[in-house]
Write a protein that binds this DNA or RNA. Structure first.
Lengths: 373, 373
DNA sequence: CTGCGGTGATAAACTGGTTAACGCTCGGCG
DNA sequence: CGCCGAGCGTTAACCAGTTTATCACCGCAG
């Protein structure tokens, strides 16, 4: 810290004086870099780096000195530059096929992310919500600053998924039928739907509406993933009483996946003939909308109309009537997926991807009752 | 693309042959870089970069060729390296003082982030939830890969806030009394609390509990930010009827800010003497828990107990009894903060930071009624 | 024949850090 | 006295891109 400090102090001055001053940024906005600290402290960049990341590698005095200089100049290592070297961002991405307001308005998604967040908490990571960018999820994955991700609501053939795969970014698929070489976590949607439908059938209902949340193409056969399994479940339950999705007493109502969508579904429902006596919704929030609209219209749930949801979000048991629904372990689903991702991240060798199927459970509460008559 | 392509192809080969092969990574995990593409395509790194970012800067043929090679080799620009240069991450951070599961379990926060997400959507950004890292929010801000952030639930004196300030990272404070030089958005918590308390007082209640969600130090004077304003509001309303927070008929119950906390608050409430006839909660989810627990205990809301919430989250109007609460424009609050942040990001010169105060509104529904007798 | 402007591509510097490898000094030990 | 290792610091390469300045080449006007 005597001769060397002088030398170190001189060399940059010399470099500066000797010609190029190509700083483009005006002085006022010049962010202070590791080099500035090194210069002011009279040490090498390495020393500064060590002072921040490798306590003990330097003498206590030097470390203290460097840290002091850094504090005085308001220096902090640039996290992006750091990530470039370490190849770690300490961030877990969640790829969602819709925009953020839509996703976060949905309590189901919030719970799912909360589950993923449990792992972030343990691992000291932040959570990045990655929505489509200029309409393209693929493009969004190109720009995401993450160590890997959990992919929701996409099929394995999706371009974004293929892109992740090609780049060998570790990721886990949620609620999708993944090929063997892609890790996945899903719930038993088939059984959940089966249970829901069987429940209303057991209660004697035969005029039933299904409130679903994705653009219904008219061809149930075209569905993939979650929706496909659920409709298979409905079909199976209906078959047991000699009915099918095409029966004239079965109606399929398409609506947006939120409370407003449920309300709209109720309006549509009132126009149907024969009038359904039960609705099976593909989501609790849709069921909420149905119940609310029914309440406003003077239709009693469950006396005049039985309503069954799907998900069992927290609010479902607080409602009056409390919602009969299919519980899926939403938080655990998120947690498991994130845990699998962490495993992949740690693994030296690419291990055999796991596939997890979580059970569901019918929760009978107050919104469903025996059919009148 | 004739002689030069040859020359370009040779030079790296030569460089490789001439000595150092210090690739540390085993071949199998070697990620393909811009250099690999340049070599295979027989062009310079610059050309590859231009092919991706500067259409038109290269001849159409060259661009096509490079892009083809890139596709074949499964190449995609490293977003971290790119961010280092461009100094843009296309990510907006939300600094939260609690861990992610806690935050996302709270519908109020979900709505807030949904509002912030509206801006992300418009700007094509992703949203990063930045929780404390190893207990330290300050440390978390050092590692966050974001262009700037919205800070929630912190006071201006917090170390994390000071860190952001020192590093000249653009950020906006939410729900905090910010100094002039820090942009902020808040709601009129004072008035909200005043209205809530006045409401129950007007209904004739005099034995009142306040269910609050932060470690109650016993000294209301020590609160900062939101909590301080709200308690000022309560105090003002009480003063109008000659009471104060210290009156023997006013009880302050501390609980966690979730449904379970509300339930626990109800248990505590039943032990109080004199028994309160009304509860003013600092959050709707706490009110939910209160109502649920009351229901289970056979206590009728609002006949036996009036409950007033705060926030007006979506579920509040779906509950039976529908919740009387103070509506704050949660989504708008998030959106405004994010918009201000975007402005700061765009601004060449640091402009005068704005301070926005949003209004609140009392929404009287079914959970509050005139005091018995 | 020379000068000049426009294309299309490149070399080299730059973004802001981390890290492998090495050098120097000094104390302990054979 | 010479060797060895530990402690402390440095140099230079490296991470994977972007950007500036430059240059070769071509056609064309002077």
């Amino acid at each position: 810290m005597t001769k060397r400090s002088l030398a170190a102090e001189e060399s940059p001055d010399h470099a500066n004086g000797s010609g190029h001053r190509k700083r483009r940024q005006p002085a006022h906005s010049h962010k202070v870099t590791i080099g500035d600290i090194a210069r002011h402290a009279g040490v090498s960049k390495t020393a500064v780096s060590f002072a921040f990341n490798r306590p003990g590698r330097l003498s206590a005095e030097t470390t203290r000195h460097i840290l002091n200089v850094a504090r005085e100049l308001g220096y902090t290592p640039n996290p992006v530059a750091r990530s470039l070297n370490t190849r770690r961002t300490h961030a877990l991405g969640v790829i969602v096929p819709q925009d953020i307001p839509t996703v976060l308005s949905n309590p189901f998604f919030a719970e799912l992310m909360s589950g993923i967040g449990e792992v972030c908490k343990v691992e000291g990571m932040s959570l990045v919500i990655v929505p489509p960018m200029r309409g393209s999820l693929e493009e969004a994955t190109y720009a995401a600053l993450v160590d890997g991700c959990v992919v929701t609501g996409l099929s394995a053939e999706d371009k974004a998924v293929r892109a992740l795969r090609m780049r060998r970014i570790p990721f886990v698929m949620l609620d999708a039928d993944a090929p063997d070489d892609i890790a996945s976590v899903q719930v038993d949607d088939y059984r959940g739907a089966y249970l829901a439908m069987k429940h209303v059938l057991d209660l004697g209902h035969r005029r039933i509406a299904i409130a679903t949340f994705e653009p219904f193409t008219g061809r149930v056969e075209d569905y993939t993933g979650t929706l496909r399994h659920r409709f298979s479940g409905y079909r199976a339950a209906l078959a047991e009483v000699g009915m099918s999705l095409c029966s004239p007493r079965i109606h399929i109502i398409e609506c947006s996946c939120d409370v407003a969508g449920g309300k709209r579904a109720f309006q549509l429902l009132t126009t149907l003939r024969p009038q359904p006596t039960a609705v099976v919704a593909l989501s609790d929030v849709i069921a909420f909308g149905l119940i609310e609209a029914a309440h406003c219209a003077g239709v009693c749930v469950p006396e005049d109309l039985s309503v069954v949801g799907f998900d069992d979000i927290e609010a479902s048991h607080l409602l009056r009537p409390a919602l009969t629904t299919v519980r899926q372990p939403t938080r655990e689903k998120g947690r498991r997926a994130a845990e699998m991702f962490i495993q992949m991240l740690r693994a030296e060798e690419p291990a055999q991807p796991q596939h997890v199927m979580l059970p569901v459970e019918l929760i009978v509460r107050e919104s469903s009752a025996r059919a009148a008559r």
